[in-house]
Design a binder for these strands. Structure first.
Length: 191
DNA sequence: TAGCTGATTGACT
DNA sequence: GTCAATCAGCTAA
């Protein structure tokens, strides 16, 4: 069973922290692929200068009233990034999925990524995990509580340390501590 | 219409 | 460590 809608209807930083250890299941493409979330970043609303809800008007509408849906965008004309829309009623926010630990469909991921199945490069970055899971702009607006792309609760007890830090790779509001990751995990991004 | 920017990656020195 | 790839959407005109 995927996480319920209510899970996403909270403040983005809370959702970002609670998503650590959860499992993304993708039935996109011919082979089912799945991975455990090991790194996330929270993005807020207009008060967060780094958020697309603040400086990308064409995407802004998607952030309102769409908790639990996917926001996929292309960055640098080359890569895709996957977000989960969050926030209580009327409050825009999202959580960027930055890194996964591969669980299922390793061979398919390796084929899509053109790297070895035991390589950390499989899913240890935002652009990498979207490629491994066959996520493209077609998944923008997709429902993450039902369908071909869903997020499920942790399949094992949460026995890990959560490390918080500043977000990486951005040029605005880069000092806010809205990045969360599993401490010492092999598949966290290089950041 | 032209020019610029970016929540990244991979190749190269 | 540096740097190019590549494009949607913004801004200026």
């Amino acid at each position: 069973m995927p996480l319920p809608r209510a899970f996403y209807l909270r403040d983005a930083p809370d959702v970002a922290r609670d998503l650590l250890g959860c499992v993304i299941v993708s039935r996109l493409g011919r082979t089912l692929t799945a991975g455990r979330i090991v790194e996330t970043e929270a993005y807020l609303g207009p008060e967060d200068a780094a958020s697309h809800a603040a400086f990308r008007p064409s995407s802004r509408a998607l952030f309102y009233g769409n908790g639990g849906h996917a926001y996929v965008f292309r960055i640098y004309g080359v890569h895709f990034c996957l977000n989960a829309i969050t926030g209580p009623h009327g409050t825009p926010g999202c959580v960027l999925i930055r890194a996964l630990e591969p669980i299922a469909g390793l061979a398919a991921m390796a084929r899509r990524r053109q790297v070895r199945a035991d390589s950390a490069a499989l899913t240890n970055g935002p652009g990498k995990l979207t490629q491994a899971l066959c996520i493209t702009a077609q998944q923008n607006g997709a429902d993450l509580t039902a369908g071909a792309l869903v997020i499920a609760p942790p399949d094992t007890p949460r026995e890990f340390e959560i490390a918080a830090g500043t977000r990486v790779g951005i040029t605005r509001a880069a000092d806010l501590p809205l990045r969360f990751r599993i401490a010492g995990h092999r598949y966290v991004s290089r950041g």
